[in-house]
Amino acid sequence: MAVQAIAFYLLATVTLVAGVCVVSARSPVHSVLFLILAFFSAAGLFVMLGAEFLAMLLVVVYVGAVAVLFLFVVMMLDVDFASLRQGFARYMPLGAGVAGILAFEMIMVSTAVANGGAARLNDTPQASGADISNAETIGRVLYTDYIYFFQAAGLVLLVAMIGAIVLTLRHKPGVRRQVIADQVARGPKTGMRVISIKPGAGIDE
């Protein structure tokens, strides 16, 4: 157990410290890098809970895709953070209020769960047999009990994707684009014409 405890405290410490650094780092790029570290150690915590499938998804989706886009945007935008910091005193009460409410809610929920006061769903997953893997258990629940929510989530993502494409797709009328099918279809008949020119006459076009 000692190894587990060491691993847990190590990962938890790294997660918390990285989280603090996300807020306090001066350079926005460093902030995103610390965010990635936080995601990564959170994935480690998932592995320790036995949820290796969720851990891998966390790494693939958040670290591998979302954070890359963050990094992309932050690196390319030249954000002037000195001017953003000027309003610190003005926004301080609002931020403190939000943080206070969040902390209060978290304490309430964890107290309720710890005392058994909150309604519990089916606590143990149905298939916790030794030979059934984590991914299989999630799949069985996801594609049966929660199929409608799953499909609805998929639809929401599809709408977001199409929306992003529609917002950025514009065809300028003056720009000539490469149409590869046309190029492939071009043969001697369509690609050239033979003209016989009389001497001294030339051709006018």
Binding site: M56, V59, V60, G64, A65, S133, A135
Partner: peptide, 13 residues
């Protein structure tokens, strides 16, 4: 058990 996903995650990093 999630070997393939693990490799996919590592290569995405």
């Amino acid at each position: 058990n999630v070997g393939v996903l693990y490799l996919f995650a590592i290569s995405s990093l």
